[in-house]
C-alpha cells in the first residue's frame, strides 16, 4: 500500500549567464533559481496494482520515484509505503523494495554477473534454497543464461537491463519501482521484461510502479495510469477511460491514385475534424458521433479515386500529445 500526500520537491539551480563573462560573473556572484520539479502530487496505490507513470521528459516522474524510494527528501508533503516513511527508516524500508533506474546500473561493473547476485543474496540474507529457485525463475523468464558468467561491462544494453531487472526482483520485493525499464531496448527484450513484470505481479501480488515513454508498456501492463506534466498530476485513472473519451475519434488515411487530383467532400464541421494532405497521401480525422464511419468512407470513395485506404484508431500517444498541449481536458 502506497500513500502519497501533497509532495513537493524544489531544486535549486545555478543560473549562468551566457558566455565567458557570464561564467566569470557566476563564479563570484552565483545566482540561483528555484525550480519546482514536483508540485503537490497525491495518490494512492493498493497492493498488487501495476501503476504506470507517463509524462514528457523532465515532467518530474523520476523525481517522484526517487522520493518514493527514499533517495530524495520531499520539501513538503509525505509518503508512506508499507507503513514506512522511506527517508526515516531507509535501511528497513529498502529491504522490501526493488528498484531499477533504466539509465543506471546496480550491477558490479567489473565482475561477472553471477557475482552481483551472490552479493545481493548476502545483503538481503536470502536462504540458499529460495535463492536457487528464484535464480532459476529469473534466468528462464529473462533469458540470462547466455551471459550470466560474463563481466557486466561486456554486456549489451538489453542484456544489462534484463540483468538489472533480475537483480531488483531477486529478494522478492513487495514493491517494485521501475524507472524507464525498457528505454532503448528492442522488441524482443521488451517482451522478456514485460513477461517478467507480469508474472511477478500475478504470482506474488507485487505492487509495481513504472515510468515509461513507451506507451505499449503501459497498454500491455497497466490498468491505471498517472499522467504528470510540469511536476503536476494531470490525470489519475483508468487507461480505458482515456480510450473511451477519445475512442470515438477515428482516422482514415488513403493514397490517391492521381496525386495531383483535387478532392472535395462535404463533412459537417466539428472539433475533431482534421484533414492533412501530403502529395498523394491524405489523412482525415473525425468523430464518429458526428459522422458514421461507413458514411465517411463512402464520401471519400465518392470524392476521389483511391489506390489504398486504411482506418486507424486514435492511439494513446496522440491522446497524450493533446493533453500535454492542453487541447484536451480529461
Amino acid at each position: 500500500m502506497i500513500e502519497v500526500h501533497n509532495i513537493v520537491k524544489d531544486f535549486r539551480k545555478t543560473i549562468k549567464k551566457p558566455g565567458l563573462a557570464g561564467s566569470v560573473a557566476s563564479l563570484f556572484r552565483p545566482e540561483y533559481e528555484t525550480v519546482r520539479a514536483v508540485d503537490d502530487v497525491s495518490f494512492k496505490v493498493p497492493e498488487g496494482e501495476i501503476l504506470g507513470f507517463i509524462g514528457p521528459n523532465g515532467a518530474g516522474k523520476s523525481t517522484i520515484i526517487k522520493m518514493l524510494t527514499g533517495i530524495l527528501t520531499p520539501n513538503s508533503g509525505s509518503c508512506r509505503i508499507n507503513g514506512y516513511i522511506p527517508q526515516k527508516e531507509r535501511k528497513k524500508y529498502v529491504r522490501e523494495i526493488g528498484v531499477v533506474f533504466g539509465q543506471r546500473t546496480q550491477l558490479w561493473w567489473d565482475l561477472p554477473l553471477t557475482e552481483t547476485y551472490t552479493v545481493l543474496r548476502e545483503i538481503y540474507n536470502i536462504p540458499d534454497a529460495q535463492f536457487k529457485k528464484r535464480m532459476g525463475f529469473l534466468t528462464e523468464v529473462l533469458e540470462l543464461d547466455q551471459f550470466i558468467s560474463s563481466p557486466v561491462r561486456t554486456l549489451s544494453l538489453g542484456q544489462r537491463m534484463r540483468a538489472d531487472i533480475a537483480a531488483s526482483m531477486l529478494h522478492s520485493p513487495k514493491v517494485l519501482f521501475l524507472d524507464e525499464p525498457t528505454i532503448g531496448l528492442d522488441i524482443v527484450v521488451k517482451d522478456n521484461i514485460r513477461k517478467a513484470i507480469r508474472e511477478l505481479n500475478r504470482n506474488e501480488k507485487t505492487t509495481i510502479i513504472l515510468t515509461t515513454h513507451d506507451l505499449s508498456d503501459i497498454e500491455l501492463l497497466c490498468k491505471r495510469i498517472i499522467l504528470i506534466d510540469k511536476g503536476r498530476l494531470v490525470y489519475d485513472g483508468e487507461l480505458s477511460h482515456i480510450r473511451d473519451t477519445f475512442g470515438k475519434v477515428r482516422e482514415i488515411s488513403f493514397t490517391l491514385a492521381d496525386g495531383s487530383a483535387a478532392i472535395d467532400f462535404d463533412v459537417p464541421k466539428h472539433e475533431d475534424l482534421a484533414v492533412v494532405r501530403e502529395g498523394a497521401q491524405v489523412s482525415v480525422r473525425f468523430n464518429t458521433s458526428v459522422i458514421h464511419l461507413p458514411d465517411m468512407l463512402a464520401k471519400i470513395l465518392a470524392a476521389a479515386r483511391v489506390s489504398d485506404i486504411a482506418v486507424k484508431d486514435i492511439d494513446v500517444e496522440e491522446i497524450l500529445r493533446r493533453v500535454y498541449t492542453r487541447q484536451a481536458v480529461l
Binding site: T69, I71, K92, V94, T105, Q106
Partner: peptide, 9 residues
Amino acid sequence: SMRMIKPVS
C-alpha cells in the same frame, strides 16, 4: 542513488 536503495550503510 544505487547505494541508497540497498539495505546497507
